[in-house]
C-alpha cells in the first residue's frame, strides 16, 4: 500500500529539496552582502558614489538619481563590480535569484514523481521570475 505523500506529516521530497537549496542560497547571499558591505563602508574598495555624498542622492526620484549619477539601470551593475558600493549587488542579486534556482531544481524531482502538472508550474514560475529578473520589461518612468 503506497501511502499518499500528502497525508504524511513529513515534507514531500520536492519541498525538502527546495528548502535545502533555499537555505544554502540564502546563507551565501547574506554572507556575501555582509562581506561586501564591510569592504564598502571601511573604504577598502572605493565606491562609485563616495559615502559622504550618497545622502545627496537618495532624496531624488530614481530617474533623477540615475541621470545625475550617470548610473545605467538594469544589469549594468555587473560591469561596475570594481566599486565598493556596487559589489553589494552580487549578494543582493543572489538573494533575489535563489528562488528561481529553487524552482528549476525541483522540476526533475516533480517529474520523476509523475507530477507533470506541478513540474510545469515550476518551470512557469521560474520563467515569470526570470522575466522580471532579466529587465526586458523595463519599468516606465516618472
Amino acid at each position: 500500500m503506497t501511502a499518499d505523500p500528502n497525508k504524511s506529516l513529513q515534507a514531500s521530497p520536492e519541498q525538502v529539496v527546495y528548502a535545502k537549496v533555499l537555505e544554502k542560497g540564502m546563507l551565501l547571499g547574506l554572507g556575501l552582502i555582509l562581506l561586501s558591505f564591510a569592504l564598502y563602508v571601511l573604504g577598502i574598495l572605493k565606491p562609485y558614489i563616495p559615502v559622504d555624498e550618497i545622502s545627496k542622492y537618495w532624496t531624488l526620484s530614481v530617474d533623477e538619481y540615475l541621470r545625475t549619477t550617470n548610473i545605467h539601470a538594469g544589469w549594468s551593475w555587473v560591469g561596475m563590480l570594481g566599486y565598493g558600493d556596487f559589489l553589494n549587488f552580487v549578494g543582493i542579486a543572489l538573494l533575489a535569484g535563489v528562488t528561481i534556482v529553487c524552482f528549476l531544481v525541483i522540476v526533475p524531482v516533480l517529474w520523476k514523481n509523475n507530477d507533470k502538472l506541478y513540474a510545469f508550474f515550476s518551470v512557469l514560475e521560474a520563467l515569470i521570475l526570470s522575466v522580471a529578473a532579466s529587465g526586458i520589461l523595463g519599468s516606465g518612468g516618472h
Partner: peptide, 26 residues
Amino acid sequence: SITDTSAAWIYLNKGCVIPMMVVPSL
C-alpha cells in the same frame, strides 16, 4: 519569498536599490 522576488527584480533593474540603505535595514 516568491512574490517579493519578482517585484524586487523590477525595482532592482530600475536602479531603486541603494546598498547604504538596504544593508543596514537588512
